[in-house]
Computed example of a mutant assay.
Amino acid sequence: MNGFDMDSWKSNAADFAQDARSRAEGLINSIKLTDLLERKREEDKMKKTITTVLAVLGIVAAVAAIAYAVYRFVAPDYLEDYEDYEGDSGEDAEDADEDVVEEN
């Protein structure tokens, strides 16, 4: 009768169920941790991509600003030719100056 002892079967079944639950919880926690780590890796990859794109854009903007500054420094200033320009034609302005000188 010892082979058919129901109390020992019940305790063995309860131990088996408890062990199965703990292993299932461990497996679920492991899966959750794996998913969390995978999401973290994807977020880090996205951050790295965004950072790289912004760095490239910053470098391009800096090079463009430097090129513009060099252009403005090196390019001739065509307005220097017109500093004395008063809006009159050349001959008319000379005649007007002569008239003023003759009146005195």
Rank of each mutant, 00 (worst) to 15 (best):
R21H: 11
D81N: 06
I59A: 14
E91G: 00
Q18M: 04
N12I: 05
V56E: 08
K32Y: 09
Y78G: 09
A96H: 06
A62Y: 07
T49D: 11
R39A: 05
M46R: 15
D15W: 09
F73E: 03
S8E: 01
K48Y: 07
M46A: 15
K47D: 14
N29W: 05
G3Q: 12
E80T: 05
G90Q: 09
A69N: 07
F4P: 12
L54T: 15
K47C: 10
K48F: 11
A65S: 13
D44L: 12
W9Y: 04
T52D: 13
R39I: 03
T52V: 08
E38V: 05
A75P: 01
A67I: 02
V53M: 11
R41P: 06
Y68Q: 12
D81Y: 06
E103K: 11
S11F: 02
D97N: 04
F16E: 15
T51Q: 13
N12Q: 12
D44C: 08
T49R: 15
I31M: 14
A65I: 09
Y85H: 05
D92W: 04
S89M: 02
Y85I: 00
A69I: 01
Y71N: 06
V70R: 00
F73T: 10
N2D: 15
F73M: 06
D7E: 14
I31A: 03
F73Y: 13
T52G: 13
A61F: 12
F16P: 00
E38M: 04
A69S: 12
E43C: 09
P76Y: 02
K40T: 11
G87F: 00
E25Q: 11
E102T: 09
S89W: 08
